[in-house]
Amino acid sequence: MSIEVKDLSFRYGKIVALDGVTMRLGEGAVGLLGPNGAGKSTLLRILLGFLVPERGEGQVLGYDIRREQAMIRRSVGYMPESDCFVAGMDAVTFTAYFGELSGMPRQEAMKRAHEVLFYVGLGESRYRLLDTYSAGMKQRLKMAQALVHDPKILFLDEPTSNLDPTGRAEVLELIRDISAHKSIQVLLSSHILDDIEALCETVVILNKGKLAAEGRMADLRAIRYSLYELRIKGDGDAFRKDLESAGSRVDEMEDGLIKVYMPEAADPMDIFRAAGRTGAQLRYFVKSRTSLEDLFAGVVGVD
């Protein structure tokens, strides 16, 4: 296992950011999913040693997160969420600078900076001042500095935030290439479901600081819930309460579509029985394939 945490807890003052999170992550691209404030960035920061957990323990590549932070940082490339650069520098100097701070010899860092800047598509503008870079370029620059020392794991915190569709597609393509072909493990933290769905085989869902779901995407889709989409005529509230009392989760969309997330053991006929009991007419009924969005809504409760 490359990342393993046990009973990890952290709080900012009175606000609980992580509450007893336990998980084990293996190889490949892993998505860290959750709504804003779920504790994703806090988890990444604890893994990097930026924050000291209040309780619990963890390891990254076998290095203890409390005692061997330097070794972890040497093996990890971190791409933060916010824009960050050093004013007055060009991209080559910037990337080489952080390579050198990672422990690379100066000349090697400079050579490597050129390589990774070409890789992320900033080769032509590598001598331009960073102050003049666009949002998309800054995002790719952050990727370059995270890759310069050839890390074993890449922590990407909201890598596509604030990007236009083209920029987003470019960054996603880079992440896909890295995780698929370069034997670099990627831990991708995002609240954008499509990004995770497009790139990751495994997903960890956090909600309010707690682990809401964890596992291979395909497994989670298959075993967690059965999703049914329906439309009704009649007393919607009574129908909903009846289903919820039986352990299902019911979400009503703006267009009147009702999504029912039934526990895997439940009988779909219960929907019809509930309709009969509450006098609701079922006008539309279909079993749906659960997307990540549905899974997310099922465990987190966010549409």
């Binding site: 390589e115 992320v120 598509g121 032509e124 790719r140 020392h149 470019e170 890295i178």
Partner: peptide, 30 residues
């Protein structure tokens, strides 16, 4: 999917070392 890569990714063959004065690049750059 849009491709921005101008060159492929290659792994670095070197080894990260521990500097005696890890702060020196900060000073020089400053």
């Amino acid at each position: 999917m849009a491709t921005v890569r101008e060159k492929g990714y290659t792994h670095w063959e070197g080894r990260l070392g521990e500097r005696r004065f890890p702060w020196w690049p900060i000073t020089r750059t400053g």
